[in-house]
Each structure stands twice: as C-alpha cells, then as structure tokens.
Design a binder for these strands. Structure first.
Lengths: 221, 221
DNA sequence: TTACGCAAAATATCATATATTATTGACATC
DNA sequence: GATGTCAATAATATATGATATTTTGCGTAA
C-alpha cells in the first residue's frame, strides 16, 4: 500500500537538525551569531527541547558553540580555522583517496564516472554565468569527492571526512566566488588519475585542488 | 571573591554527558546495549530531555547509535571497527606528532617530560601487579599522548584525535589485558625521539606502538 | 567611574501529553 | 497441527509546555 513512499516518518528532530546545519553551512545563520531558543522556536517551528537536542548535536560536530548557562552560538570563522580545516581535508581525503584507488572495483569506477559527469554539467553552467544553480553545483561537487573515496573501506574515516568537508564548504559559501574552470580541470585530472589507479598523482592533484581553494578563500578574509 | 572556586555550576546536562561517555568507554554500558530512557532516568537521575540531549550528542561523536523512532543503543564493537580506529589513530596522531615536534617550544617539552614521568609512575605499579590503578594509569596514558601532540597548533586536529583516541581506549578497556613493559619502553622511546626533534623516528615508534596495541586487542576477539 | 541590587530575559530542567513501534493472542488458512 | 494475518494492547520514543535557575541589562547610590 506504500503508505511510507519515501520514509514519511521524518522526525521533527532530524529535519530540524538538517535545516539548521544547512543554514549554518550556507551562511543564512551568520558566524558568531547568538542562537536564541525563542527565536529559533519561532523560525523553525520546533519546541525548545528539540532545538536543544539539535544544538547539542551540532556542537559535537563543531558547527555550534555551546557555552554553559549562556546558550548557543554559530561557530565563528577565522583565518586559522579555515587553514586547519583545509589541511585536515588534505590529510583525510588524501589518505582515503589512496585507499579507495587501491581497493575500488568496477562499481566504484561506474559511480565515479557518473558523479563526475553530473558535476561537469553544473560546472559548464556555472562557467556560462548561471549562478542560480550554485547550491546544486556544490552538492554535485560534494558527491563527486564523496564518490572518489567511497571505496576506502572505512566508515569511521568517511564520517570524519564528511564533517571536515562540510566545514570547508561553509568557508567556500562565505566567500561566494567561483574559481572559474581551474577547479573543473582539476576535477577531471583527479578522475583520470583515479581511473588509471595512479594514487600518487591523484593525491597530488587533490592537494593542489584543496590548497588552491584555500588561497582563493583567504583572499576574501 | 572566588565564588566560583572551580566553576561550581556544573550543569546536569554536562555531568550526565561525561558520566554516560565514561560508562561506555569503560564498558559499564555494554556494546550494543539498548539505552532505554526510563532506565537511564532511574540510574543517572536526570530527566528524559536531558538524556535525549546527551544521547544525541554522543551519537554525533559515534559512541551511541540513534535509530529513528526506535531509540538509542551503545555503539557496537567489531573487528573491522577497531582496525579502522587504530589506523585513523596512526594517521591523525602521527600527523599531529610531526607538527608538534616541529613547532613545540620549551613549555611543550616541560609538560611532556612531566606527563611522561607521571605515566611512568603508574606503569611501574602496573608491572608490579597493582591493577587497582588501572583507570588512573589509562588517564595518564591519555595525558601523555595528548601532551605529545599539544603543540601541533590545530584545534580541529586535536578535537578529532580526542574522539578517535577515546574509541581506541574503549577497545583497550574491553580486552582488559596489560601489554607488560613493552608499552612503557615504547613510550620512553617516543619521548626521547620527540625531545631530540626526530619526528620521523617518533612517528615510526608511535605507529608500532598503536599497531601492537591493535594486535593485542584483536587476539581477544 | 565603580559598585550594588533589582527587574527582565534567557537558559536549564522537569513532568506530562502525543505518536510510534512492539507484543500478544484470537482467528483464519494451508 | 503448524503457520500466517490482523486487531487490540502495552511499551517506548517523540514532542510540548510549564517551572526553576542563572545571566544580563539598567538604574541608582556611593
């Protein structure tokens, strides 16, 4: 009877969690902003308990700062922080990429090629000046990098990487700018190196890719 | 007027968080166990709201599994998981150690020597068969490894490492055994390499140290 | 200016109501 | 007789609003 066509039972807590996390990453909630329970209750239509659950979770992930008896704040941004995040992304994603290239099978290659193709469609539109798809473009970017390391065979590594990637993404969204087709070229180069199982080259280009994004973001600070 | 001599206002939420995390790491709450809200309420003397805040946080850190509409469970243990954790610890702690050795100043050396000394006192007592101080010994072990990487100059890296270290610690506590003075010798060797600023050697011994602990733990599975 | 104290606002905690899942047992089917 | 289906009930998780503490802001006095 497909009453739960798409898992209709999305709990208020989980949807609120996703919404607030999204709003932090995409800059709708400004860095350092006070997160007043009553205001959030108004905006997201959830009770204080739910919001406190959510904010405590996000504090564990590092997107929110919880100060005892003084409430919650959006995690601030800083030069040092983005540098740390970028370097951690190089470390984690580079390591995962190496493992993934060593272990990936035909399915992995298939998903990877598909993810790159879908990303490239967006890159073409961005280069043509269509910024309306910025969020979709970034999601495709996320999915491509995710696909690259999917075969690393370590859930713990993927979980840590996911958090760091999202933090890096927040900085990219804050500076708003598009790095042109440089990034697209690097994506293609990483794809080719991965498919030819050249993990050293793939790691090098990935590092270049991430650190170029870092420099680009730092200019805006 | 030191009215808050030692931050007297420890909130119910934070103490409950610490207690449950401790009980998971030290095996008082068995892997895979169902965490019933009503039972926890009884045991820890906190309301369901507080417990849900706590369990949601711990789920973000990976010590608890939250299944939508079905409740909370202590994170299960497995061979694959401990292998992933050990390898992540090598990656993160190794990297942080290298940075720390490059950047550490005299204060860092001082804290490090002190931490090793205090750890060694416990190692001597463990070797003498006094297992009553097992928990203190492990805390000193934690503090020594923490002191090693403290100068890495990346709060994000330290935060990730702390979580991974605690997960590794849980596996060590599960198997209960003491690796004899091997570990003590390795600790001393890492200390010496760090003080002589030989990061390559320090990293190597650290990797040996962690992977030996892994093998030791795997025997008990 | 600094210190004090009161009022207002915000957070932390709790007890309770609502919604969902799990279990039991009767009845039908193979 | 064993197995499968369904409805009623019990158990549990989710969500809310109310209460108790704590912090903050502001006016007043030294």
């Amino acid at each position: 009877m497909l009453k739960n066509a798409q898992r209709a039972t999305a709990t208020v807590g989980s949807t609120t969690h996703e919404r607030i996390k999204h709003d932090i990453i995409f800059g709708l909630l400004a860095p350092g902003a006070k997160l007043k329970l009553s205001a959030l209750k108004e905006h997201y239509g959830a009770s204080v308990s739910i919001l406190r659950e959510t904010l405590n979770s996000l504090a564990s992930e590092g997107f929110v700062i919880a100060e005892e008896q003084r409430g919650f704040f959006v995690a601030p941004v800083s030069r040092e922080d983005i540098e740390e995040i970028a370097n951690l992304r190089v470390l984690l994603e580079g390591h995962a990429l190496k493992l993934s290239i060593e272990r990936g099978d035909a399915d992995w290659e298939g998903h990877l090629v598909a993810a790159h193709h879908k990303l490239h469609l967006m890159e073409v539109r961005m280069q043509a000046g269509d910024v309306s798809i910025r969020e979709t473009w970034k999601r495709r970017d996320w999915e491509f990098h995710q696909a690259l390391i999917q075969a690393c065979d370590s859930k713990n590594l993927l979980a840590l990487h996911s958090i760091i990637f999202d933090k890096y993404l927040r900085y990219q969204m804050l500076v708003l700018t598009f790095r042109g087709d440089e990034a697209a070229i690097e994506h293609k180069a990483i794809l080719d190196a991965a498919l030819s199982r050249d993990s050293a080259t793939a790691q090098n280009i990935l590092e270049t890719h991430i650190l170029a994004g870092l420099r680009h973001a730092l200019m805006a600070f």
